[in-house]
């Protein structure tokens, strides 16, 4: 029972991402990109992340060129940042905004189900579904997503909904 509860929370995908996270390390944005940066902290544990998003215009639509970040945090927050990087890179900003909102919905489900199309959209991020059962850890999983949301806002992209 013990093992299963913890294995449900710490799925292999989360542990793998935490160990070798994507997007870790701040790199300069490609020339001509608009850059948004955000600094987010989890005041309960002192964890922090500085996240940078680079946007380019593709046929007049803003597209996420790259996401990178640095900071310190637990396995949940690092893995979440890593998955978020994968899900945002190369996507148009509106899709990324929608994914941020879907991930927030997932974190506040408390045992309910997510609509199948949202599950598809979240992909690997569905591995964090178990976090919703541990209210103290939701902030860990959300830290990077909220930083991304803030960084996008700074370059004029406003994901739907407000906190």
């Amino acid at each position: 029972m013990t093992v299963s509860a913890m294995e449900q929370l710490y799925q292999q995908l989360i542990l793998d991402h935490a160990r070798a996270p994507h997007g870790h390390g701040l790199v300069p944005a490609p020339d001509g990109d608009a850059v948004g940066e955000s600094f987010a902290v989890n005041p309960t544990c002192g964890d922090e992340v500085r996240l940078r998003v680079a946007l380019r215009l593709d046929d007049g639509r803003p597209v996420v060129d790259s996401v990178c970040w640095e900071g310190q945090g637990c396995s949940i927050s690092r893995a979440s940042l890593s998955v978020l990087t994968e899900l945002a890179d190369g996507q148009d900003a509106a899709t990324v905004g929608a994914r941020i909102e879907s991930f927030r919905t997932l974190m506040h489900l408390r045992g309910g189900g997510l609509e199948p199309e949202l599950e598809d959209e979240l992909g690997d991020a569905m591995a964090f579904a178990g976090v919703a059962k541990y209210p103290a850890r939701i902030k860990c999983a959300l830290l990077g997503w909220m930083a991304l949301r803030d960084a996008l806002t700074k370059v004029g992209v406003h994901p739907e909904g407000t906190e």
């Binding site: 013990t2 509860a5 913890m6 929370l9 710490y10 309960t44 544990c45 002192g46 964890d47 945090g73 637990c74 396995s75 949940i76 541990y134 850890r137 860990c140």
Partner: peptide, 29 residues
């Protein structure tokens, strides 16, 4: 190699309640 939050989560799973974080002493940490 393991963040305090993750340590606390595993201890909690064994029924052990400890505190994790900076314990309201950020400068000391």
């Amino acid at each position: 190699g393991v963040h305090a939050h993750d340590v606390g989560q595993l201890l909690d799973d064994a029924g052990v309640a400890v505190r994790v974080g900076h314990h309201c002493a950020q400068p000391l940490h």
